[in-house]
Computed example of a mutant assay.
Amino acid sequence: MTADELTGRAELPRTDDLPAVPHRLGRVLRAVVGPYLRGKYDLTIHHEERFPRSGPLLIAPNHLGLLDGPLLGAVAPRMTHQLGKLEAFVGLQGFMLHQAGQIAIDRSQYDIRAIRRAIQVLRDGRALTIYPEGTRGPGDFRKVRTGIAYLAMVTGAPILPVALLGTRLPGGDIERFPPRGSRVDVVYGETFTVDRVSFPRRQVDVRAVADQIGEVLRAHVQAAVDATGHPLPGVPNQKDPDG
């Protein structure tokens, strides 16, 4: 069953009944965390001029380790919202994530509330980070889930490929941050779009678009590795059941 079928609507789900997505704390945290991470790591941002400064945007980074979310949220040229695993939204951490503008998603099912929130962010002309791989891994975009394709198809938002390199060291633990002084590269790609598709958006069509997006993302990561000489860390040394 597709997200369209679950919502029971021919076009985008309603978002006008949703409260505004918080973001003030996110702006404060960016001002604090950004300088801290720039001081802690040997950080280089490549092609920052490619990052659109306004309008709806789907940010599509690869996913290597714990540092990915805080790093990209802190150094991006504008405030970003992020889809994150529901398991992280517990207790004080969950409250802080919510107030910082992050969106919890239950990856075990079609999470209609998270989809509506994501569409709301894009409809409001904001930037949304979604990890196409869905979980931490080798970071090569070998597998791309359909969520990014669905959001791109129904909203028309451009997609910005991002290659994160060095956020997990080869053989490094996915539950740890890289050590101080580690080299980290953030490489922005060229934005691209996919055709906007009206209802019905069949699952087979969404899957086909996800595969097309995956081809672009894989090419960008490989080009980033070649340009920087900074290799991907390979398969994690332990399984990550929670992403």
Rank of each mutant, 00 (worst) to 15 (best):
Y131P: 06
T7N: 14
P35H: 03
R24L: 10
G55S: 14
P241M: 04
G166D: 03
L86M: 14
A60G: 00
G84P: 06
L71V: 03
I115Q: 06
K239W: 06
V28W: 04
V33P: 10
R218N: 08
L43P: 11
K85G: 13
G94V: 04
T155Q: 05
P22A: 08
D211N: 15
Q212M: 15
H220M: 13
K85T: 11
P35E: 05
R207T: 14
M96S: 12
D4V: 03
T193W: 12
V162G: 00
H98V: 08
V194N: 02
F141Y: 05
S182D: 11
L29V: 14
A224K: 00
R196D: 02
F192G: 02
R113E: 15
R126Y: 03
R196Q: 07
S182G: 00
P233D: 07
P158I: 07
L160Y: 10
R78E: 08
H47C: 14
R196A: 09
G229F: 02
Q120K: 07
Q212S: 09
G73W: 03
S182I: 09
F51A: 02
S182W: 00
I59W: 00
P56S: 08
P56V: 09
E133H: 01
K143E: 12
E175K: 06
L232I: 08
G73P: 00
P77G: 09
R50K: 10
L37N: 07
H47L: 10
A149Y: 02
F51N: 01
R9M: 14
V187D: 06
P231R: 11
R78P: 02
V28R: 04
Y150I: 13
L83D: 04
Y36L: 15
G73D: 03
H81T: 08
G8M: 10
L18P: 07
R38M: 01
G94N: 09
V209A: 09
I105W: 00
V32F: 08
R168S: 03
A127Y: 03
I103D: 00
A210Y: 09
G214Y: 11
P70M: 09
F192A: 12
R107W: 13
T135W: 00
R145E: 14
H47G: 10
L25M: 14
R38L: 10
E49Y: 07
E49V: 07
E48K: 12
K143W: 09
A163G: 04
L12V: 09
S182H: 06
